[in-house]
Amino acid sequence: MSAKVITITSGKGGVGKTTATANLSAALAMQGKRVVAIDADIGLRNLDVVMGLENRIVYDLVHVVEGTCRLRQAMIKDKRLETLFLIPAAQSRDKNAVKPQDMIDVCEQLRPDFDFILVDSPAGIEQGFRNAIAPADMVLIITTPEVSAVRDADRIIGLVEAEEKGPARLIVNRLRPGMVQRGDMLDTADVLDVLSIDLLGIVPDDESIIVSTNRGVPVVMENNSRAGQAFRNIAARLLGEDVPLMDVEAPTSWVQRFTRFVRGS
């Protein structure tokens, strides 16, 4: 077995890198895959919080890199999913505590025992980002349908291509169908028009994300969340399944849904 290393990055902060990492890791593990999530956001760690594993941290990535502990000691097993592990970032250090080669070494050590290694990149284009993409076999770019996030995503795609890690694939996060319909938000076509890379999935804006993030339970574990469904679909696509894009731009009230049902669409 040799794991595939997938780095999740965005350039801009706050667009959902950590949420996506936590959810895709969990969704892949729910399919029985062996998954490690690595938080590369050293100094501002929060993948552990989103995954609800904060209180179990003893050692972190910097300890591993500095040789304070063995790799296994820093791997925290998820509380629900048997095949999901987290390597947390250090909270007290900064990005320079780890070098790109360290990330490659850590991933090489993990590869034989896992199917997927997901790396949560920090925002920005500096050392932290360089660390995060160094080991990547595939890069997922997260953006929201906002001009500033798309601009940063475009920059990141350029950098990823320059590192010969491309072609990157795109996740459009926090789409609000109602706003798109009113013409108040960029739609997916607008985003793809600029970025011109493969679209891996669209995640609708969903309040349940905030609830689940605060509770430390990835939303993919909830059946009735649309965002959760979107992340499960993306995970399925990563596994090579051909899942059609979710119809997030569809009307959502039950009357409209009923109309659509009657029309047979």
Binding site: R151, D152, D154, R155, G158, L159, S196
Partner: peptide, 12 residues
């Protein structure tokens, strides 16, 4: 002249 045969992205 120089020919650039790709998309020029933000920052390039």
């Amino acid at each position: 002249a120089v020919l650039v045969r790709r998309t020029l992205r933000s920052g390039q």
